[in-house]
Amino acid sequence: MLIRPPADILPSEITDPDVYRARRRFIAQAGGLALATALPAGHAHAALGPLVASPLSTTEGQTSRKAVTTYNNFYELGTDKSDPAENTHRLKPAPWQLRIEGLVNKPRSFGIDEILKLAPLEERIYRMRCVEGWSMVIPWVGIPLATLLKQADPQGSAKYVEFVSHYDKTTMTRGVLDWPYTEGLRLDEARHPLTLLAVGLYGDVLPVQNGAPVRLVVPWKYGFKSGKSIVAIRLVEKQPVTAWMKAGPSEYGFYSNVNPDVDHPRWSQATERRIGEFSKRKTLMYNGYADQVAAMYSGMDLRRFF
């Protein structure tokens, strides 16, 4: 005769597998996010997820994660391409606050976790064309900038948006540019569906050298228009003067749309080298996004408004 010992756990006390799996997933993600923001980027890949695929993504071959994370222009962390990846300790991406201010009805600050909750995270695979004549294809993760702007409720008088990057003179490059780094867009450009507020790449939290924890991505403009490590978004009435416009007014205009027909005064913009490829390729008007963005500039003299 089989005598069963009484069960020492009541069935009602047993956690449902669905519940504990969800809990574990939450802990893993939260832990991963905390880890990624605490550790220098490149050491840990903390996954962001789940991601929604976007019809705005290109199907072109993606530039290797290694190239994307070791070949960067981020002058606050050094002016050589390899410097930013080596100087990630100079920027602490957590805690972080992003202010929206200026001509808005609801000025406020966002923590990164709040931004992550504003909309489903999308993967956007975009071409990125640097003003120096090279390009990449990068799988960004983010939300439309328009979603964030809507939260602050811009006033009717707001015509432009200024973006201010983080700057700490005790740890970051001095001189070279007039810090902090600022960039700007027209309000319609900022609200364009392609304009992305990125928090990650390759499915992971944004590495420091790529502009952690939050940056702008404007794929039809030269790379420098996409400000990194943004701390403030300011809605203004007049066209802002950006850091590069101050540094070289004849070389860098406010618009800086990718345009193979308008050369940089010192070099041609007709072709580009896709990182990882041997021969150069022709640069496309608006970096290949003409169908989506050309209408915003119809009737404008693109040589004058470069």
Partner: peptide, 8 residues
């Protein structure tokens, strides 16, 4: 070993 843009 010359980085992402060896030609440059």
């Amino acid at each position: 070993t010359l980085g992402a843009n060896p030609i440059e």
